[in-house]
Design a binder for these strands. Structure first.
Lengths: 182, 182
DNA sequence: TGGTACATGTAACATGTTACATGATTAG
DNA sequence: CTAATCATGTAACATGTTACATGTACCA
């Protein structure tokens, strides 16, 4: 099975361009809002991919509007590339979790320090969970435009954050208990 | 708050070298086994980081043994760099989940295709969960050497996989139900 | 003696991050 | 008039992936 190799970031931009022409700036905002929780997208990258896709003929720049805004639209070639990519096997997820490196090497770190890191990060994830709850409520109420796919993605985020919070509650505390046991 | 910038991969190698001298080859295997589930490490990178850290004076190469094996040991400077890194704020996690891109753009993909992807990936994660259960059992029984930190890391992996499996069970099926509703 | 595991490394490329530079437009 | 937001882009660097090239030692 041929696994995906083509730039998924670029292909995602094509996905968003199905909804209409957008500037690089719009695409950055759109991507960060809609896939930013599980796919990193930076401004630099977006402009880079747009130029490269323009060269490939997947997008084309329209007339510059106010503030030099250059709206890109997707071409037929772009739609074809997108569909081919979308139908190809999605690769396995990768996660990079710096906190777990800290935990794994916890024996080289004072307990208070480790505990402080764990507390901070638990708070970060609690906030993330709150945000997801808001977003989901707005999607279900219709206040925020969405479809079943977008909802499933948010539910994924919530399942993920819930898992982390469970771990912070159930497993992490044992790491910094002030018992003498090792 | 200064977040981590220094190469976490390199620093992790230093972490493992605390346990004794190792060759690049050993380090690849060790890193993949112990942090590979939440931190990608390739052979190429390991050799690259070892040369660069040798230049920085964080590691030094010992005498070549059988099969050109070049064992590296950590220096005092390396230990200092490691400790400084370990005590610095771990950055937030990043996840890259290609399947969620597929899901988000699910409206452009035939239902059967999406369902096939979801099924395959659910199986992948079910297997990952099984492996974690084995590893945890061996760690707890003492068959596999471990400490409370390594155990917490495995528990994290399990919480994560459990969340994914829950999502596959509870949320994903709605995406490909053959109702006419959208 | 032939296959597998051990062992090191390079080359080329893809992707991602940070920082900077520049300017237009709008809202208060 | 000034701060915030919109808007584009480059430079430099860091990190990560894939593929290749090469050779050694062990074991069946």
């Amino acid at each position: 099975m041929t696994s995906r190799s083509v730039n998924a970031t670029a292909m995602s931009l094509l996905g968003f361009l199905h909804e209409g022409p957008m500037t690089g700036w719009d695409l950055v905002a759109t991507a960060q809002r809609r896939i930013g929780n599980f796919w990193s997208v930076t401004q630099s990258q977006v402009y880079r991919e747009l130029s490269s896709m323009a060269q490939l003929g997947f997008v084309e720049a329209g007339e510059v509007g106010a503030r030099d805004a250059r709206p890109y639209s997707i071409t037929d070639a772009g739609r074809a590339a997108f569909r081919e990519w979308l139908a190809s096997e999605p690769g396995n997820p990768t996660i990079r979790f710096p906190l777990l490196l800290t935990v794994l090497f916890g024996r080289y770190l004072p307990d208070e320090r480790l505990r402080a890191f764990l507390d901070e990060h638990r708070a970060v994830h609690a906030r993330a969970m709150d945000r997801y709850e808001d977003v989901l409520a707005k999607m279900i109420s219709g206040e925020q435009p969405s479809d079943k796919y977008a909802i499933a993605v948010v539910q994924f985020g919530m399942a993920y954050e819930r898992a982390l919070l469970d771990w912070f509650t159930n497993a992490a505390p044992a790491l910094t208990e002030d018992s003498a046991t090792d």
